[in-house]
């Protein structure tokens, strides 16, 4: 039950994108076409889940033990960067089309604050290993949910007719704001 609550909490109540406002960059960048967005979701799910596992190990078994917790950020980014690189290489091999479509946003997962965010939160919330992995997975699911919903909206918005000053990313951000307004409905669904 606890795990289910963690998942629900991370997906709906404290959605990484819509309530914590983490990972906005790929959220806006790759939400133009559904297939690309799905590819991004896959990559993020992989990176976030595995990164939360590895960073937990790094933090608790290496950094803590050695008493160098202040190196957390550097160490985590190192790990995350490697994972992203791994995904990048693999994707180039197996789906060059998707690789081309994601373009710069794939390596940018490295600096996706959602990934670092989930790793840091895991430590802050003092989750155990399993909980940390589940939280990471759920957070990436939340990111995916938001991204997929937003991609659907984006296709409608791209055909809309906003005033010139608001065309493009501006109106997308407004929409994201309204979407997060709607997500407020889930507030305190899970304590």
């Amino acid at each position: 039950m606890e795990y289910i609550l963690i998942i629900l909490g991370a997906v709906l109540v404290n959605n990484f994108v819509l309530t914590r406002f983490l990972g906005i960059c790929p959220f806006l960048g790759v939400s133009k076409k559904l297939p690309t967005a799905l590819g991004m979701c896959g990559a993020v799910v992989f990176v976030m889940t595995s990164a939360s596992a590895v960073t937990w190990v790094v933090q608790n078994l290496v950094l803590e033990k050695l008493g160098i917790g202040y190196l957390q950020t550097i160490a985590f980014i190192l790990v995350i960067a490697s994972f992203v690189q791994l995904v990048d290489i693999a994707m180039k091999k197996f789906s060059p089309k998707l690789h081309a479509a994601l373009g710069i946003f794939l390596p940018l997962i490295t600096t996706n604050c959602a990934v670092l965010g989930v790793s840091v939160l895991n430590i802050q919330l003092e989750y155990g290993f399993l909980k940390a992995v589940i939280f990471g997975f759920a957070a990436s699911l939340g990111f995916s949910l938001a991204l997929i919903i937003f991609t659907g909206l984006r296709e409608k918005i791209d055909r809309a007719n906003p005033p010139k000053a608001f065309q493009g990313v501006a109106i997308a951000l407004v929409t994201a704001g309204l979407l997060s307004l709607a997500f407020m409905g889930f507030a305190s669904l899970v304590k």
Binding site: I148, L153, E155, K156, L179, G185, A187, S188, L189
Partner: peptide, 23 residues
């Protein structure tokens, strides 16, 4: 949920996936 009434939020949330439903 935290709110006694969920109609507004429910409809807004469904609004957001309307393009996906259409598809």
């Amino acid at each position: 949920g935290g709110y006694p009434e969920g109609v507004s939020f429910a409809i807004l949330l469904m609004n957001s996936i309307t393009p996906l439903i259409n598809r």
